[in-house]
């Protein structure tokens, strides 16, 4: 009995509060079920069927789609390209943003201006900017190759040669991602107590490098971890630039996961197969999040 009393006391519920709580949540709950949970479950189930849009019926084929994925050279290329893309974009845009943030934070002059400049791609229509890049990187009329020609270098066909296309896309990806990471790093830097830097100086820290090692880097840990995870997740989702600039070409050299899923699903209407690709994509994203919360989180929080 005393147990019941003890449990009842802290959660004293005013009359009607339970009802009000559910009523206030109801629109969100209904739309959540209908627009998020149900379709997600359906997508998962779809991955185990041979459903094609317009086909009269569908059959449960178990792991058939995944079997096919393993044998599908196109998918393997797509997965590999995505990993390469993430492998380039994430490290470069993170390290670059960190360096930029330190440089911008080092003095007050021009801080707001530079922050705005590097942030600009975040708010620019990616499709439009992709077309701007297409012009910039155009093999014959593009300013980049024109400039290279002045130096006596024959520039490659950046976006239409299978040797350079992925690199060019990654470069555009870095350009897009760096501003966002920069803003996060700047927020992280301003959260470091100034007194810690000063204590370090009194303790005998003389060089910028030592200060970075002793104070900035460890205290930036949570921010860095977050930036690493979100940058990887965002770059796994690369779609716009591929859809606009290369459509996966030439010769599948720029085929990436989401674009493959899009073409399988909405060009060839093989929804079951496309759902299987989606599932692979989902597993990668979940894996990255798990890495953040389970493995790395413990190492950067000093609570």
């Amino acid at each position: 009995m005393s147990e019941a009393v003890a449990r009842a006391r802290p959660t004293f519920v005013p009359r009607g509060e339970g009802w009000a709580g559910w009523m206030l949540c109801l629109p969100a709950v209904l739309s959540y079920l209908l627009l998020l949970l149900l379709p997600t479950l359906a997508a998962v189930l779809l991955a185990f069927t041979d459903y094609e849009l317009g086909a009269p019926g569908l059959a449960w084929i178990g792991l058939g789609n995944f079997q096919e994925l393993l044998d599908d050279r196109g998918f393997r290329i797509s997965l590999r390209n995505t990993l390469i893309y993430v492998g380039i974009v994430a490290p470069v845009s993170i390290a670059g943003a960190l360096a930029l943030a330190l440089l911008i934070e080092a003095a007050t002059r021009g801080r707001a201006l530079f922050r705005a400049v590097f942030f600009l791609p975040m708010v620019s229509l990616p499709v439009a900017m992709a077309t701007a890049w297409q012009y910039l990187l155009h093999p014959t009329i593009g300013p980049l190759n024109a400039a290279l020609a002045q130096l006596g270098i024959a520039g490659p066909a950046w976006l239409t040669s299978s040797d350079t296309v992925l690199l060019s896309l990654a470069f555009i990806g870095i350009w897009e991602a760096i501003g966002f990471n920069l803003v996060l790093f700047l927020a992280g830097l301003t959260a470091i107590p100034r007194e810690l830097h000063q204590a370090a100086e009194v303790d005998g820290v003389k060089s910028a490098w030592e200060r970075f090692r002793l104070v900035t880097w460890p205290l930036l840990g949570p921010t860095t971890l977050f930036v690493v995870t979100i940058t990887m997740i965002r770059s796994v989702r690369v779609f716009d630039s591929v859809a606009v600039l290369t459509q996966g070409g030439p010769n599948r050299a720029s085929e990436v996961l989401l674009y493959t899923m899009y073409t399988e699903g909405f060009t060839f209407f093989r929804l079951g197969y496309s759902a299987a690709i989606t599932l692979v994509f989902l597993i990668i994203v979940l894996g990255l999040m798990l890495l953040q919360t389970r493995v790395l989180d413990k190492r950067v929080h000093y609570g």
């Binding site: 107590p193 007194e195 810690l196 000063q198 204590a199 100086e201 009194v202 303790d203 005998g204 820290v205 003389k206 002793l214 104070v215 460890p218 205290l219 840990g221 000093y302």
Partner: peptide, 21 residues
Amino acid sequence: LRAADRDVAMVFQSYALYPHL
């Protein structure tokens, strides 16, 4: 001289301990 070369020790109001150490 900079702080590191003055050879004085300071105790800060907020202690300024390194949280990760």
